[in-house]
Structures are given as structure tokens and as C-alpha cells.
Simulated assay, not measured.
Amino acid sequence: MSENEAHTSLVDKITEKLHDYSSSSDSDGEVPSNVLRIKKHLFGRTESVHNVLGCGKAADLVLWRHKQVSVAIFAGVTVMWLLFEWIGYHLITFLCHFLILVLAVSFVWSNAASLINWSPPKFPEVILPEGIFLQVAQSVRHEINEAFITFCYISSGKDALAFVKVIAGLWLLSVVGSWFSFLTLSYIVFVLAHTVPVIYEAYQDPIDSTWYKFMDQSKSHLTKISVAIKEAIKKIPHHPKQE
């Protein structure tokens, strides 16, 4: 087979495949399963939600992969918020009462174990490793240094857009902070962090589709507004300068 015949045969095969695809799309109205669809996700994300969150135990808890543990943490934080915010319980008072209860139960259990033939409580040997504190300290140090570098860069006047964004963000945060106490605001952030990711993971396709439709419509409206403003400016009569 010559080179021209081989080329002609390849073109014929490609044309036949395209014809089959177009006929199947026209008849059924659906894309065949062997054709890959490129899906657009929020923020240009290509990985799964679990991978974006770090693929660790924290991601499992946020996405409710271990439902019993996630429910226990959520319920515990909610009870703490109710105690401190609604009932007016104070943190030092709570810690003291909690330690009193633990010490009293352990003391009574230890002394009564020999009388009623119970095994005494076994206290675990807790030794905190030094590496954890060093890692936390290094992470905090890194974040503080990055914050100082960012602050110096923005305040130097080199990026006016970043300056406006930071000022707007701080002002918005100050307004939101005036609505809630620090504890309530922290609890709201906790609830959002433990509900939004799992809801988005379950319904990410319709959420992504709705988001990009909204963005496309917004860009279309903004373009129309921009064109209308330019047309209105052009219609404004300009008087020539008198010498």
C-alpha cells in the first residue's frame, strides 16, 4: 500500500467515526459514553474534594467519612457553645468543674475498688512528644512571617488592587464581627467547615453547573452595562474649547 493510499484510508476512517458520532448524537440527543466530557469545577479545581482538603484524618472528619466521630465532635462543640454563649458559663469555671468531677470519680473509684472487688482505674501514661510542639511552633512562625511580608508588601503601595481588596476584606470582617461575639463567630465558621464541604461533595455537579451559569450571566450583564455606559458617554455633547 502506497503512502497516499494509507493516508486516504486513515481519512476515510476518521470521517466514518465522525459520521457515526454525529448520527448517534442527532438520533438520541445524548453524548456517547466513550466521549469524555470536560467538567469545570469551582476555582479551576481538578482534584477531588478529599484531595483538596489534604487526604488526611481531618479531611475524613470534615467530609463525615467516620460519621460517629464527626457527630461526636459536632455535638461536643455545639454543647460547648451552648454552655458558654447561652447559659453564660465561663471557661475557667468549666475547666475547674470538669477537673473536680474527674478527680472525684477517680478518687472514689480507686478507694472503693478494694471494697467491692472492682479493678482500680488504669490511668494511661501520657507523654506528649516534643516533635508535635516543634512542628506547631514552626508552622505558626512561618504563617506569622508570611503575614508580616504580605503586610509590608501591601503597605508599600506597589499593588493598589491588593490594597483595596485587603481593606475591603478587613472592613467586611469588622462589620461581621460586630454582629456576633468571637465565640459565636468561631462556632459559625466551625459549622460551615463541617457542612459546606460534605454538601458540595454530594452535589458538586449541579452546584458547579449553577455557579458557572451564574458567572456567565453576570459577565453578560456586566458587558451589556459597560456597552450601555460607553454609548451614553458617546452621546454626551462635547463643546469645543474657546480660545
Rank of each mutant, 00 (worst) to 15 (best):
A58C: 03
A59K: 00
D60N: 13
D60P: 01
L61P: 00
V62F: 08
V62E: 00
L63A: 00
W64T: 00
H66P: 00
K67W: 02
K67F: 00
K67M: 00
Q68E: 09
S70Y: 02
V71A: 06
A72M: 10
A72T: 13
I73W: 08
I73C: 09
A75I: 10
A75N: 14
A75V: 10
V77A: 09
V77L: 05
V79W: 11
W81Y: 15
W81R: 08
F84L: 10
W86F: 01
I87D: 03
G88N: 03
G88T: 01
Y89C: 10
H90M: 11
L91Q: 14
L91P: 04
L91C: 15
H97Y: 14
H97V: 14
F98C: 01
L101D: 06
A104H: 13
V105F: 15
V105Y: 14
S106I: 15
V108H: 04
W109P: 02
S110H: 15
A113L: 07
L115Y: 06
I116L: 13
I116A: 11
W118G: 07
S119T: 02
S119N: 11
K122Y: 12
E125K: 10
L128S: 01
L128C: 02
P129L: 01
P129E: 07
G131Y: 09
F133Q: 02
F133V: 01
F133W: 03
L134V: 01
L134K: 11
Q138H: 11
S139M: 00
S139W: 08
R141Q: 15
H142W: 15
I144D: 03
I144E: 04
I144N: 02
N145S: 09
E146C: 06
F148P: 00
